[in-house]
Amino acid sequence: MTVLAPRTLSDALDVRSQHPDAIVLAGGTDLMVGINAGRIRPQAVLSIAGIDELADWSATDTAVTIGAGMTYTQLLHSTIAELSPALFQASLTVGSPQIRNAGTIGGNLATGSPAGDTLPVLAALNATVHLASLAGERTLGINEFIVGPKRTALAPDELITGVTIPVANGPQEYLKVGVRNAMVIAMVSVALIVDRSTRFVTVALGAAGPVPIRATEAENWIADRIDWDSGQLCSPDDAVRFGSMVAAESRPIDDHRGTAEYRRHAVGVLAQRALRRSFPGAIGMST
């Protein structure tokens, strides 16, 4: 086994093209678990942790581009927190300080777990994933990038370089159910993004299907049930109906962390609450 540790992206892409079998090591929080357990025994490892240009981020008035190598801790300590509150909230629910110090947003994307904490946020934000290889760069929508449970569209000669999300223009929420108060894998999660500019609400579900799922019917319905000028729901019952619609669009499974029945129920509750937080009032609601 070989450990390759380039310091620049271009060197890394060279290595990647010559060693497509090399497993990419970023924060190690997934890969090392597999190596420690003997499940993964790579012949070569491409460590990208030392590539500073991947750990940077930049923002325009309308978009934030986050380097794949940014750790959750770096993200939490940056002003990305204000530009995307839901991404901040999701990052804060990842593991422990030790895990957040090591794990990266690129790693979360590359692993592509249905329970990956940032993925529903990225899905709700219509994020674009930046990929690079010696052949050039390409971008994929998050829904094109994650194609199945722990399966992505990343080509063997490619690296994830970053992800671009729009700057928030409205409330954002990330809610996650786990059996413990912290340090827990999502049994189910919901990201809800309100965009006042487009007068639209997007909602995506984590651990409620093979990939992060967008609840598009619920999104389309609720957009018309919001009085955008007053920032209120049209009726106090709308949040409940919205939750039911979101639950209906989930595709959860039974596993040792939870039942499909509970997951479906819980995403509905979470979606309802996320909407309630974003639109605390409703027309006709007694005060």
Binding site: V3, A5, L25, G27, G28, T29, L31, M32, V33, I35, N36, V45, S47, A49, P97, Q98, I99, N101, A102
Partner: peptide, 11 residues
Amino acid sequence: VVCACLVLAAS
């Protein structure tokens, strides 16, 4: 601070 079990020593 990190968990040493999740760090590949050679990296």
